[in-house]
Computed example of a mutant assay.
Amino acid sequence: MPALTRRMFCALLAVACATAGARLAWASEVLDLDWEDLIPEGDDKAKSAYEALGVISHDQISQAPAESGFAPVRSDLDGKLVRIPGYVVPLDYGSEGVTTFLLVPYVGACIHVPPPPSNQLILVNSEVPKEFGGLFEPVIVTGMLGTSASETELADVGYVIAAEQVAPYGL
């Protein structure tokens, strides 16, 4: 798996530091997000691509839009305590579990297909290693959201989360 770049590490560290001071003050103000909420108003191209995909099956994945570079993000969400469901694509893991992963909106994103736009990808860092049952099981992540552009070997990423909680998502 790819190692963290210095830029990714600095972005995650900044979000983690901001999280530590704000954790108690915002504990009751968790903002529940859907993936469409991460697309800024007025970005009709991204909204159209999102709406065209909807919930997709595995055989439709090759139709996902190939975006290069960084898509616009919602800066008003920077520093907010959020909760968002998605799927895990592990980036950094050891014998105890995964500590860094991409949270993606659908199964198969970033694996053998063009990645979604960067504003539809979240780089997640968890201080506590997590074990996951597989790539097809949804999770829900709660933590401080940051709007820090990062590059991974798999995709360009528009958001980061310092995870306070990662749990199975009950459908």
Results as ranks from 00 to 15, higher is better:
1 M>T: 12
2 P>F: 00
2 P>M: 06
5 T>G: 14
7 R>M: 10
7 R>C: 03
9 F>M: 11
9 F>L: 14
12 L>P: 03
12 L>I: 10
14 A>W: 06
18 A>E: 14
22 A>V: 03
22 A>M: 14
24 L>P: 06
25 A>C: 10
26 W>V: 12
29 E>Q: 14
29 E>N: 12
31 L>I: 07
32 D>I: 10
32 D>W: 08
33 L>S: 11
34 D>L: 07
34 D>C: 12
37 D>P: 12
37 D>M: 07
38 L>A: 09
41 E>P: 11
42 G>V: 09
43 D>A: 15
43 D>Q: 11
44 D>R: 13
45 K>M: 11
45 K>T: 14
46 A>G: 04
46 A>P: 02
47 K>W: 04
48 S>F: 06
48 S>Y: 07
48 S>W: 10
49 A>H: 06
49 A>N: 09
50 Y>I: 03
51 E>D: 15
53 L>V: 07
53 L>W: 04
56 I>E: 02
56 I>T: 13
57 S>H: 14
57 S>K: 12
62 S>C: 13
62 S>E: 13
66 A>P: 05
68 S>H: 13
75 S>V: 14
79 G>Y: 05
79 G>H: 02
80 K>V: 04
80 K>I: 02
83 R>P: 05
83 R>E: 10
85 P>M: 04
85 P>G: 06
85 P>D: 12
87 Y>M: 07
89 V>M: 08
90 P>A: 06
91 L>D: 07
96 E>Q: 15
97 G>I: 10
97 G>C: 07
98 V>P: 02
98 V>S: 03
98 V>I: 14
98 V>M: 05
101 F>I: 08
101 F>H: 08
102 L>H: 03
102 L>Q: 01
104 V>E: 02
104 V>K: 01
105 P>N: 12
105 P>K: 03
106 Y>C: 08
108 G>V: 05
108 G>N: 04
108 G>Q: 05
108 G>W: 01
109 A>L: 05
109 A>N: 12
110 C>S: 11
112 H>Y: 09
113 V>G: 01
114 P>H: 11
114 P>E: 07
114 P>R: 02
115 P>Q: 10
116 P>L: 11
120 Q>P: 01
120 Q>I: 05
122 I>T: 03
123 L>H: 01
125 N>K: 09
125 N>W: 11
126 S>R: 03
131 E>D: 10
133 G>I: 00
133 G>F: 01
135 L>W: 02
136 F>M: 09
136 F>W: 07
137 E>M: 11
138 P>N: 04
139 V>H: 00
139 V>W: 05
140 I>A: 08
142 T>N: 08
145 L>P: 03
146 G>P: 01
147 T>R: 00
148 S>T: 13
148 S>I: 09
149 A>V: 06
152 T>V: 03
153 E>S: 15
153 E>P: 04
155 A>E: 02
160 V>E: 03
163 A>K: 01
168 P>H: 00
168 P>W: 00
